[in-house]
Simulated assay, not measured.
Amino acid sequence: MSKHKYAWKPYLARGLKKTYPPKAILFHQGEIGNGFYYLEDGEVKIQLTSFKGDERIIDIVTPGELFGEAGIKKEPYFSTAYVMKPSTLFYFSNEVFQQICREHPSAIDIFLQSLIRKERLLAEIVAQENRSFEQKLAFFLLKLYNKNKDTNIAINQISLSNYIGTSRITVYKILQQWEKKEIVTVSNRSIQINDLNRLRAILNDDIVIPSVD
């Protein structure tokens, strides 16, 4: 488990607790915010829409993480947040955040570290743009693994294709090749990573898998 997860938990009593059903939209890209969220339970996907109207999943928020931090500066959210399964969240307005920081200066560092991770995430996404679909898929699966240190990734192929910007058929073909090599095991709504080292090698060009681009 990443060391930053649950770091905001001591301040949950100051937030507004809310529950949301699947498909609920927490905020829209371009909407001016006035606060941010902490995910206690459930799952939220962060989706970016390009100027051409193309939609891409850029992150999946898991319990213990902050998201929507841009709202604290009353700036437009750079993405849209969708609830993927029943979720419990805490909402922190700008006013409440300021109070927490005055009383607990260490909270500022936790918040800034979360912001830095989001900036790094965007930089990583840009860096992946010129890579093959196999490498993009390997990158995303490894990122999800690193969040929870769990080799069983609960995600479907439609979401994977949305993330790497290709068709579900292409994702299916890549996963079939990896499954034959025993790198992963694919089920209906999850992917079991069997060999982390070989998946990392694909990302780093050390293993060449026939292209299905």
Score class of each variant (00 low, 15 high):
residue 7 A to W: 03
residue 9 K to M: 13
residue 10 P to W: 09
residue 15 G to L: 10
residue 18 K to A: 11
residue 22 P to R: 11
residue 28 H to K: 07
residue 30 G to S: 10
residue 31 E to Y: 06
residue 32 I to T: 13
residue 33 G to K: 02
residue 37 Y to T: 06
residue 38 Y to I: 02
residue 38 Y to E: 02
residue 48 L to T: 06
residue 60 I to E: 06
residue 63 P to I: 13
residue 63 P to A: 05
residue 64 G to K: 02
residue 68 G to K: 10
residue 70 A to V: 11
residue 77 Y to R: 09
residue 79 S to C: 14
residue 80 T to E: 13
residue 87 S to I: 00
residue 91 Y to G: 04
residue 94 N to S: 15
residue 100 I to R: 09
residue 102 R to W: 10
residue 103 E to D: 08
residue 105 P to Y: 11
residue 108 I to M: 12
residue 110 I to F: 00
residue 114 S to V: 02
residue 115 L to D: 00
residue 124 E to Q: 15
residue 126 V to L: 14
residue 130 N to Y: 13
residue 132 S to C: 12
residue 138 A to Q: 06
residue 140 F to L: 08
residue 140 F to T: 01
residue 142 L to F: 08
residue 143 K to Y: 08
residue 143 K to V: 02
residue 149 K to R: 10
residue 150 D to Y: 06
residue 153 I to D: 00
residue 153 I to L: 04
residue 154 A to I: 09
residue 155 I to M: 00
residue 156 N to G: 08
residue 161 S to T: 05
residue 163 Y to E: 01
residue 169 I to N: 14
residue 173 K to Y: 08
residue 174 I to G: 01
residue 174 I to R: 00
residue 174 I to N: 05
residue 179 E to V: 00
residue 185 T to L: 15
residue 187 S to R: 14
residue 192 Q to Y: 15
residue 207 I to S: 15
